[in-house]
Design a protein around this nucleic acid. Sequence first.
DNA 1: CTCAAGTGCGTACTACGGTACGTACTACCA
DNA 2: TGGTAGTACGTACCGTAGTACGCACTTGAG
Lengths: 196, 196
Amino acid sequence: MRKGRPNDPQRRDRILRATLAVIGDEGVHATSYRRVAARAEVPLGSMTYYFTDLETLIVSAFESLGQTLQPLYANPLRDARDDAEAVEALVAATCGATSPSRHEIRQYTEMYQYAARSARVAELVREFQDESLHVLRRRFSDGAARAVDALIWGWWTYRSFHDTPLDEEIVRRAFGALVAELADDTSSGSTEGEPT
Amino acid sequence: MRKGRPNDPQRRDRILRATLAVIGDEGVHATSYRRVAARAEVPLGSMTYYFTDLETLIVSAFESLGQTLQPLYANPLRDARDDAEAVEALVAATCGATSPSRHEIRQYTEMYQYAARSARVAELVREFQDESLHVLRRRFSDGAARAVDALIWGWWTYRSFHDTPLDEEIVRRAFGALVAELADDTSSGSTEGEPT
DNA sequence: CTCAAGTGCGTACTACGGTACGTACTACCA
DNA sequence: TGGTAGTACGTACCGTAGTACGCACTTGAG
């Protein structure tokens, strides 16, 4: 039974938001037309109407996720005026004001996982990673950018498993150390530690 | 129709190996009794005989994965005689001889993912993480251990998405920097970079 | 008022997957 | 030889899920 209105422009967005909610709460594996439909309170038929198949729905949801999260931490980094400010931006992105919530981290890891079975999502992930690296490289050396990128991800993963928050000071010093040590990344290595 | 032999002690192991193979190739989401049965070349009925339900099968597979991988990188770390050797062990575990293959990394990330929907696997993951942290803390400060742990994971994740190998020298210097900077982790911070 | 186009939806079809259950076959004891 | 316990397996049942398809309802032209 039609609602009456000939079109509902919010419906598509509602579905996308519900999709991300389901992905975050139950994982992509549990993300079915029916479950999303229930969550968004739209009939099943609407799902296939707006998104012809399930993969399209999921890819669209992940796209919107990226558009939401990327700027959140890319912008402060872009605007940092020196390395110290940049490190602060990294700390904030890892566990501070601009960092994703655990729910968002979960969505992110689900996207990474789904990339293994969807070429389109794999492409998406690669774009996100490239963009992230690109932003970091404007600020740091290539080596530092790569290390920092990996460390951010590692800490996000940690956060998704533990309730105890990260020690901000350790995070700060870790990023600072990477940035300083890898300021130039032409192999040289002051790394030996204390040789025997 | 029975095979004739009253018992086949290898069968259970074959099933477990096939399970990990399926998980690595197609992901846990695609890990079904039938698929594993086909892969292990055992009849479907055997599956439920050896593993009463699917979760038990998957948990068992992940347990065996952990028992395989943990010692691989924990042992060299435990045997390191100084920080320099320890850093070398970390490099080897990240991208060298003792590092997991991409296939194994995939299995590992699938385990992490599955933890979100299985309390038993979540417990497993936490045990693995604790054990890993424990090993690192014998060698490094708490802060360094946490940072190193996160960075390893970040780089493994990177490897699972990219064919180009990691630059070993950058990896070495990154670990070295973390270990040196966080040698004591009572907040002090030589982190300011170059203040303006 | 009639009709055609297009939007939105209800439903049914088919496939797949977990699991319960019964069955065959072996080994061993009396 | 008969019987019983336990191992291993074949199959059928039921639920869930993606998707195809066609029906309603609105709108606007004539």
